[in-house]
């Protein structure tokens, strides 16, 4: 098990290296002179030269990459071109809201989607099944920002239960945090929830046809126990895989959700950085997101051990 974890962690190195190459090339593959793009439309030749010097763009590419990588490994992602602040500091400031938003989204989505999927599979073909699947199609097909505005309209304007926008740190006020995070988490969770519910339903339908489910019923167990203990536990490996892979949806959704709800997180930082062509910040955010994704999927793989005794690492 530990050997496996170490092997997997070592395996993340080449993955992250490839990501690093792509992230580095981002600046250089963009059409035109990066320095000119960064400097903007009304820059003088002198300013462009200065930026080029500042970014080391006059050096050969491999030297640029080498020094960028060495800095990166030392935790230095460079400075924001816009504010001049270190990228690590900018990301650190914005990490908490995004982290909390993602965690709350996953929590809400998983605790709602799995029971919905189980019930849909159990009641397959009935109106309950159709209702859950309709909801899932809705979650899949309606854009995140539309769901966001609909929730604001309903939850904030009509009912007045939640604030329209903004964010309160959980360290400052727990009720404040909860009231601010609910709508964004539901918004961001819609697609994710739809994905997990569909996967849960499909896997459960398969598992419910297995002989051991019949054995469980033949023992005289109640339906709920058969569904949860016997069927769901068997379905958990594919479901947790989906949970892991679906995080990619969240990363995309975070950017939109944070914009809709004016949450000062990494998503907003990304949007702002893109609008200002602040390449070092964009690179930093992409690296953080990719690393989280890779690490999270390692955790998911490890979680299989909890569900299936046949899996040994």
């Amino acid at each position: 098990m530990y050997a496996y974890i170490i092997r997997r962690l070592v395996a993340t190195i080449p993955i992250m290296a490839i990501v690093a190459v792509f992230v580095f090339m981002l600046l250089h593959l963009s059409p035109g002179d990066p320095a000119a793009i960064i400097a903007g439309d009304f820059a003088t030749e002198e300013q462009i030269l200065k930026i080029r010097e500042q970014l080391g763009l006059n050096d050969p590419l491999y030297i640029q990459f080498g020094s960028w990588l060495i800095n990166l490994l030392q935790g230095d992602m460079g400075q924001s071109i816009y504010s001049g602040l270190p990228v690590t500091k900018l990301i650190g400031q914005r990490l908490e809201p995004t982290l909390m938003l993602t965690l709350c989204t996953m929590l809400i989505a998983i605790t709602m989607a799995i029971p919905l999927g189980v019930i849909a599979a159990w009641k397959v073909g009935t109106w309950i099944d159709r209702a859950v699947m309709t909801l899932a199609v809705f979650g899949f097909s309606v854009p995140v920002f539309v769901i966001g505005y609909l929730l604001i309209l309903g939850g904030s304007r009509t009912l007045g239960w939640f604030p329209v926008q903004g964010y309160t740190s959980i360290l400052e006020s727990v009720p404040g945090f909860l009231s601010h995070i609910t709508l964004p988490a539901l918004t961001l969770g819609a697609v994710y929830m739809a994905l997990i519910a569909r996967m849960t339903r499909a896997t459960m339908l398969e598992v419910l046809n297995e002989d051991y489910v019949r054995t469980a019923y033949a023992k005289g167990l109640a339906t709920r126990k058969v569904l949860v203990k016997h069927a769901l536990k068997n379905a958990m490996v594919p479901i947790s895989t989906t949970i892991g892979l679906g995080v990619a949806l969240l990363i995309g959704g975070v950017v939109v959700t944070e914009s809709v709800f004016a949450i000062p997180g990494l998503g907003r930082l990304t949007v702002d950085a893109v609008l200002r062509t602040d390449y070092p910040v964009i690179q930093g955010v992409i690296l953080v997101f990719s690393f989280t994704y890779v690490l999270l999927n390692l955790l998911i793989d490890l979680s299989y051990v909890l569900f299936d005794p046949r899996i040994r690492y």
Partner: peptide
């Protein structure tokens, strides 16, 4: 082979 639940002891 298939009548026992593979994930329960």
């Amino acid at each position: 082979m298939s009548s026992l639940n593979p994930v329960l002891s």
